[in-house]
Simulated scan of single mutants.
Amino acid sequence: MPLFIDFHQFDKVTIDEVKTAHIADLKIQDEYGVKYHQFWVNEEAGTVFCLMEGPDTETCELVHHLAHGNVACAITEIQQGFYQVAMGNTVKSKGGVATFTSGEIDVAYRSVLVVSVRAITLARDSKDVKSLLLPTWAKELVMEKFVEFGGREIEWGDDDSLIAIFNDAKQSYKCANSIQEQLSSKPDMSPKIIFKMGLSAGLPVTEDGDFFDKVFKLSHRLCNSANDNQLLVSALIAKLANIDIQASTMKNRVMVPTEEQLLSDLFNITENNLSDMNFNMACLCKSIGMSRSQFYRKITAITGRSPVYFLRDLRLEKARVLLQQKSGNVTQVAMEVGYSNPSYFTKCYTEKFGFLPSLS
């Protein structure tokens, strides 16, 4: 049967209350061909997530409704393999509540670390490019660190980022710092590299019914926003891992919620207008509701780059992904990311990545 997870939001909720509701589900589930496995409770956030199998979402919701009346805000079907990687190994204790093997209650927060690594050596042919996009020595180091700190690798087909998901926010932050330290301390390795990292956390299902989509999106956006060799950390990670925001530096920067919202708005607007060749800084500032000077100051403070260069980098990174995915020739991809002049696009692309777009 299909596997589902649902999301409930309460003003106040206790584990005992959810245990009682879970027992009520178990009493009638067989009549409807549904099997409730376990649940996660976060008393502080007032959130509950229930894992179940059933013929469809409507039948799963019906059992909740008949058993205790607590209908979910959202329910989504999930793939067994991805669920196991995303949530990791949890234990169903007596009463159905999810715990870790240590016996600690699992409140369902997960942390996602995205690492982007590429070489800075000039490439002469397509074989060189393949080895430079994700240098073997750096990839192996990152993967070893994922395992060392309890991360589970997530396969990602959209680009060549390295991604891991963690049960523990503190461990994910330690992993990110260790990767940063190790990659920065090997100047003699060949090829030389630059890297960027984004680290965020979240709960599995949102009111939109997305299963970790928002967490992955934020981690990728933080990674894309990071400067060379920088780690950007979300505000929630800082809270969960007890990170001192005052200790934030440009190499290891902790975001505040207003900055995260600004980046979210920036990416949403930019992604919707990426192919518009007339979309410029004036349009962006107007869409985001800031003066040019105010926008310049805020984006430069977050990313270490002016908005003009930040927008250029977003376009070129998108172009690199499209070219890797064989989504069109150089001219078509240039147009897709807002460059009307293929020659100028080639010049900008080569300056940024060290090889011609035709070699991607």
Rank of each mutant, 00 (worst) to 15 (best):
S102W: 01
L132A: 08
L199D: 04
V117W: 04
K35V: 13
E58S: 15
T59E: 05
S234Q: 03
E140K: 10
T59K: 12
S190D: 06
Y296W: 08
T76M: 05
N224Q: 13
L236S: 02
Q294N: 14
N273L: 11
F295D: 06
N341R: 14
T270P: 01
I165P: 02
C348G: 01
T258Y: 02
E317Q: 10
Q261V: 08
P204Y: 08
D228S: 09
S111P: 06
V205W: 02
P187L: 13
M255N: 00
A98S: 14
R124Q: 12
P342E: 10
T14G: 03
T300C: 01
N229M: 03
E53Q: 09
T47M: 09
D30E: 13
L113C: 03
Y349H: 09
C223L: 03
S293M: 10
R152F: 07
Y83D: 09
A226F: 01
Q84S: 14
A238T: 12
T258Q: 09
V129M: 08
Y309Q: 14
C348M: 13
M143F: 00
A226N: 04
V48R: 02
Q171P: 01
S248W: 08
F267I: 02
V97P: 01
G198A: 05
A123G: 12
M277E: 07
I163Y: 00
